[in-house]
Design a protein around this nucleic acid. Structure first.
Lengths: 222, 222
DNA sequence: GATGATTTGTGCGTATGTATG
DNA sequence: GCATACATACGCACAAATCAT
């Protein structure tokens, strides 16, 4: 009997992978900004090897890009990239929702419902944007999760992370949260009545709106 | 005017990434087999750093997995994994084909047609399995390519590579090539008549058959 | 089993070459 | 042309796991 499990040390390169990713998400490193492995290594007080390996992971994930002179920069999607990513999400998440309609138990449907209700209350009491975003993400995540397809989950997660930085832009518009909630509720309605076609079509429509909104906001910025 | 462009040296880690990937695909390293970075470094006559970085790329791609003791092994998908991967492909490639129906020029449709005709001739003259496989891959690739969505292409390519090793299993069955060709022709028929729904449904059916066949062959092996 | 030898992965410091100003 | 900054790659040291005796 081992009462206490031995804590295995997590390799630096893995820790850095998460740290750098977090820094990209929270805006410490902004899209297009350069990442210098020498500086990171110094900053964390370690050698460059683990930093380089972490960067290779991020490179393959697409969150950083390496130019022809081996300089590393944070991924800055073009408008076309954002569109491409959203079209992939439409393909995967509309498929996911139709699978979930077929497979999800009543208990699981209730979890989705609860998330929607939480989101509704959060909006009503004027909660922080980050909290509402998290609850919205929960809705999407549940739907994919209930397909029981791990690969699908990974694909969707990776795609989302590529536009993660722009998430917050949604909420410059105050009504946006309510609109999103209403669309989520509509999708859920079709899931609960076990209507594959409508649920999956509604998911596509929802993502189209999301894309249109992001596109609009991005164009205003430039 | 620079008549001769300077060839920039490709970093070792990138070269190794491709080399190792090739070795996985051609069976030099088999699924589940261990990959030892020390040996690879010695074999190629370099230090371990670039080998490690190449492995990080492959790790993120999913072609190798790292266990809890940091040992690296070639990815060996379970039956459930193969199913999950194929369901993702159904989502992405059925979406792709409906986009291609909408977007592809007549010239592009002709390229698909040519690939199918080449495949037909290759089968008739009893060509090598590898050649027929390549032509089949061309068919699928064209369809995704003509969506002009680079991200979609990448997603599909990455998914395919995860079951790449099992490709060859198809052709233990002699009729298999003809069946695949017929299904491809059917899909193409719907593309040419610009019928989104049928084309995309036929693509799903085709991939379902492919999955069923691989599943069957894999079960016979064990 | 216990113990020493070997293999292997982790991480560091340094040298070298290349681009930048 | 020179100095600086940076990425690439190497060899070494250390630790953990594995194997042999």
């Amino acid at each position: 009997m081992k009462e206490f499990s031995i804590e295995k040390p997590i390799p630096y390169y893995e820790q850095f992978y998460h740290s750098i990713k977090k820094m990209i998400f929270d805006g410490t490193y902004k899209p297009g900004e350069r990442i210098v492995e020498t500086q990171l290594a110094k900053q964390f007080g370690v050698s460059k090897s683990p930093v380089r390996e972490a960067i290779r992971l991020l490179e393959k994930e697409g969150l950083v890009v390496v130019d022809d002179k081996s300089r590393v920069m944070v991924y800055e999607p073009t408008l076309k990239d954002v569109e491409d990513i959203y079209y992939c999400r439409m393909a995967l998440e509309s498929f996911a929702v139709s699978l979930t309609v077929a497979l999800a138990s009543d208990k699981e449907l209730n979890e989705i419902k609860t998330a929607l209700e939480e989101a509704e209350r959060a909006i009503q009491r004027g909660a922080e944007a980050s909290e509402i975003i998290a609850l919205n993400a929960k809705f999407h995540r549940f739907i994919v999760q209930f397909t029981k397809n791990k690969r699908l989950q990974k694909q969707v997660d990776d795609l989302k992370s590529l536009t993660q930085f722009y998430r917050i832009l949604h909420f410059q518009d105050q009504n946006r949260a309510s609109i999103i909630l209403r669309e989520h509720q509509q999708i859920f309605g079709h899931i609960r009545s076990r209507n594959k076609e409508k649920a999956s079509q509604e998911m596509i429509t929802h993502l189209e709106h999301d894309l249109a909104h992001i596109t609009q906001v991005l164009q205003q910025m430039t």
